[in-house]
Design a protein around this nucleic acid. Structure first.
Lengths: 220, 220
DNA sequence: GTAATAGTGTCTCTCAGACAGTATGTC
DNA sequence: GACATACTGTCTGAGAGACACTATTAC
């Protein structure tokens, strides 16, 4: 049966925001193929234990990055005879968004963070997968709350606005952006919590619990 | 190796428009599992010949429905131990959009068309897959030229408008819809070709060649 | 005090949608 | 002629964006 020659893996594009730039978590491979190269955290599906490919992605994230319960969404399935030298393969890919705090606190030594704007040559077709994830993230940011997940759980309106603009939405003025936030009503102010600095204190917000996967007709 | 227990298939949701309703192409299964039930056209990946899962989807469409070169896009990958009684499986799914003319002219006896609004219980998790495809089609119709593919290659502005409205976009007046068409400029009038009836003749249009996959910020 | 950013109020101009009117075929 | 639908022009109200103003901290 031809399908015996086909094998299936799961790979995860784990993204976060560091110094105003999107970073991706990579693992240095210690085995062939591509030993010594960086690759996305991934692995074979475990038929005995994984409930589905999403479960496999969660397992991989937990094992290689110590991260549980991030925003996690299926990205695309890559396939073909040439993407892995071991033979005809599938990679079901996911992308995950996490707060930088979270990744710094929990990540073990297995992963390293790279600026997506300056990636080295990765193993397999993983550069293509990261590009695909960035495109999806940008597209979806225009009409969803996704950018919130790249920030710490509590953030100011201005911080959120810069993430939206970083992800390709055209800049708007403060008051326009705040009016949108008000109307779409997916944030809640954290009573009495402010960010201080050499200026008027900034109200901190968090994503409302029931808005964790909200999308809108249009946001920015 | 655990991945030997996992097998991979490709399934295609082939959609078209008949009598103003979206229809899906199904195949009656003659083998177990689910012998006698209707299922999406699909099959195992052929590692020897398929260049990737898209190629496998094209092969399946050509073999089971006699259809080549439709609009074809990857939908989602379904997976798990229970969706197929033979074991832990992946299904990489695609959706295809074709003109009803095309399907009537080319389709062989292997497929039958069903109104997606009144489907029987399908084999495997195929009902869920069709629902997923319909959701994607509706979502993407709001900002793309997708509805054009459900119509014959040449159509009137009013016909196109009804497809957009069928797919969930709020109805707008004729002049608003035409203004949008004018601005987005993805149709070209077919010189001298009109649809006649008990009324003023209607200009027929076709999708511009370079707009075959166009998306916009917002359409309807 | 100054500097710096947070946050708010208002004005205007564009454009989406409503509506009404004209065009051109069949019968 | 009637009728049906194609197609076009104009008006108006809502809302996006520009801009100016006030607020509150650090130093």
């Amino acid at each position: 049966m031809s399908y015996m020659h086909v094998f299936s893996t799961v790979d995860v594009v784990l993204l976060t925001l560091i110094d105003g730039k999107v970073h991706v978590a990579l693992v240095k491979r210690d085995k062939e193929p591509f030993a010594g190269s960086y690759a996305l955290p991934g692995g074979f599906v475990h038929a005995e234990t994984d409930p589905d490919s999403r479960g496999a992605a969660r397992r991989v994230l937990s094992a290689k990055a110590g991260i549980t319960a991030p925003y996690l969404e299926q990205l695309y399935t890559f396939s073909g005879p040439d993407r892995d030298p071991r033979g005809w393969s599938f990679s079901v890919t996911y992308y995950a968004l996490v707060s930088p705090d979270f990744i710094k606190a929990r990540a073990n030594a297995a992963i390293e963070l790279f600026d997506v704007g300056a990636l080295p040559e990765l193993a397999f077709d993983h550069n293509k997968i990261v590009e695909h994830a960035m495109r999806r993230l940008s597209d979806k940011s225009a009409y969803s709350v996704l950018p919130c997940y790249l920030l710490p759980p509590e953030f100011t309106a201005t911080e959120l606005q810069s993430v939206y603009e970083l992800l390709g939405r055209k800049p708007s003025t403060k008051s326009v952006f705040r009016r949108i936030l008000e109307e779409l009503d997916f944030l809640e102010p954290i009573q009495g919590k402010f960010q201080f600095g050499a200026h008027r204190p900034a109200q901190m917000y968090r994503l409302k619990e029931d808005m964790r996967r909200a999308t809108f007709d249009r946001l920015v």
